[in-house]
């Protein structure tokens, strides 16, 4: 019995961490409820979208560091069309670019056997270089109203004051789609099994290269969507979009409890991870700590999350043996 409680505590440790953080945060803030919602509404949606891609890649047993530059590149190309009034083609183009870069990553990793880290890091470098080269420091702004509605409008409204912003709705919908794919489809099951044991999965007749490629295509598309959302909110496409995406999404995924070893965890964990990261980010601001601390803090978070995940896995294994 005691063991069962322990196992539950361990398995849900990230949720517990989130609850503790929320409590501490609301004790300190002046108007905890409103604060909680404003932060969540404004920051969590984009972050969740690109973290979903990273989570997919980590479940498959790799990771995707190119998401930041993919977001910047695809949103910029999309913005070129959108500013001319072609809103839907622009969005589709952006997503297609994300998919194409994802395809490139997937082929590098599954067919040529380049380590996912070095492959996506290299792609990141090149794509970021392209962004800097093509944009040359310029910003694109002044999008048509229809496009800005993505960020300012709200499809779901209960009353004039009680409404849920569009980015929030979009990110929830995307989250549910990814959750559905992972939990309820054959493809999702295959992503998990390739991550857990690629050899055994190949023996069952699954083309592991295709599964891997699909994962990176999805990750690229999600990064592109995050980029578009971001551009819509800022009303601006700029070359610096997404610099911190890789770092943040690894931190959020790991702290949510999806281990680097692959085949475990899930996107629901990542939601918890994203909320924790958003709160920490916010806490840094509230406590008056400069945003310059961000990188250092998240580096430490990744190290600790990786260490804790390993200890957790080991303990859970011991507990579940009986």
């Amino acid at each position: 019995m005691k063991k069962k409680i322990w196992a539950h505590l361990l398995r849900n440790s990230s949720i517990i961490l989130l609850i503790v953080i929320v409590i501490v945060a609301s004790l300190n803030a002046n108007d905890p409820v409103e604060n909680f919602f404003t932060v969540m509404m404004s920051q969590a949606p984009f972050m969740l979208v690109y973290c979903l891609g990273m989570t997919l890649a980590i479940i498959r047993g790799g990771l995707d560091l190119s998401i930041g530059s993919v977001a910047a590149f695809s949103s910029y190309i999309g913005a070129l069309l959108i500013i001319e009034g072609y809103i839907v083609p622009g969005i589709i183009t952006a997503i297609a670019i994300g998919a194409a870069i994802g395809l490139f990553n997937g082929v590098l990793i599954s067919k040529i056997n380049v380590h996912p880290f070095i492959a996506t890091c290299g792609t990141n470098w090149v794509v970021r270089g392209l962004v800097l080269f093509i944009l040359a420091g310029k910003k694109i702004f002044g999008f048509p109203e229809g496009f800005k509605l993505i960020s300012t409008g709200s499809i779901v409204r209960f009353s004039n004051t009680m409404k849920i912003s569009n980015p929030f709705v979009i990110s929830i919908v995307i989250f549910l789609i990814v959750l559905f794919v992972l939990r309820k489809t054959v493809l999702g099951r295959q992503i998990y099994s390739v991550g857990a044991n690629p050899d055994a999965t190949r023996i069952t007749g699954v083309d592991t290269a295709i599964v891997t490629t699909i994962v990176y295509i999805m990750s690229g598309m999600l990064a592109a969507i995050a980029g578009i959302l971001y551009a819509a909110v800022l009303d601006c496409a700029e070359p610096t979009i997404g610099y911190e995406y890789g770092l943040m999404s690894i931190a959020a995924t790991l702290i949510g409890g999806t281990p680097l070893s692959g085949g475990k965890g899930g996107v629901a964990n990542t939601v918890v991870g994203v909320l924790i990261i958003v709160f920490l980010n916010n806490a840094l601001a509230v406590l008056g700590i400069s945003h310059l601390w961000q990188q250092a803090v998240f580096g430490i978070i990744i190290i600790f999350a990786a260490l804790i995940n390993r200890i957790k896995e080991r303990q859970l294994m011991l507990l579940e043996m009986y």
Binding site: Y192, S193, A196, N197, D199, A200, T201, I203, G263, K264
Partner: peptide, 8 residues
Amino acid sequence: TEGVIVTK
């Protein structure tokens, strides 16, 4: 390593 996925 090839027959089963032990973590599933």
